[in-house]
């Protein structure tokens, strides 16, 4: 087992463990902090796959900007473990069973799929580098790129209009 496989399993365990902690921790601030750890693990996966641009963007946009926004809102509302609304335990159990059923169905469907022997190579290839991504972004994908700027503008206006009342 070489170093990249060890890293893969370590990052996977980190992502899954902290994702479970997001769901089960009672304090919303702790949930946000666990989610940041999940995003760090996923960024590690991106870098392992040599998608360096996406790894860094994931850190800056998700772990940096979006999670800070969540923290701001939680602290603004002064939420903590005492004010946390709880479902009754049968509804929680029903949620876990429903999620487990989905997991079962997806894994069973994957058993039938023809993905045997296909590999995603770790640490090779240069499609994840900024140069190649930028080339494709500003030639083939330039119209969606411009449309996404309009989307941002409308999201900004929408957030201000909703928040102003």
């Amino acid at each position: 087992m070489d170093i990249s496989q060890v890293l893969f399993y370590a990052l996977s365990a980190m992502a899954l463990g902290s994702a479970i902690m997001v769901v089960i921790s009672r304090n919303p601030v702790h949930s946000v902090l666990w989610l940041i750890i999940t995003f760090f693990a996923i960024s590690g996966h991106y870098i392992l796959l040599n998608a360096q641009f996406l790894g860094i963007v994931n850190l800056i946009v998700y772990a940096g900007a979006i999670m800070v926004l969540f923290l701001f809102v939680i602290m603004l509302m002064n939420l903590n473990a005492e004010t946390e609304p709880q479902k009754n335990k049968w509804l929680k159990l029903a949620g876990v069973v429903a999620g487990g059923c989905l997991l079962l169905v997806l894994v069973a469907a994957l058993k039938q799929a023809e993905v045997k022997g296909k590999v995603a190579e770790l640490g090779t290839g240069d499609i994840g580098l900024i140069k190649n991504l930028g080339n494709a972004l500003f030639t083939d994908f330039v119209v969606p790129f411009e449309i996404s700027s309009i989307l941002f503008l409308s999201a900004m206006v929408g957030a201000v209009v909703i928040g102003k009342k």
């Binding site: 899954l16 999940t38 989905l102 997991l103």
Partner: peptide, 13 residues
């Protein structure tokens, strides 16, 4: 799949 299902459980529970 595992991460997605954890997200589903969180939304439901």
């Amino acid at each position: 799949i595992a991460l997605f299902c954890i997200g589903i459980v969180g939304v439901l529970a």
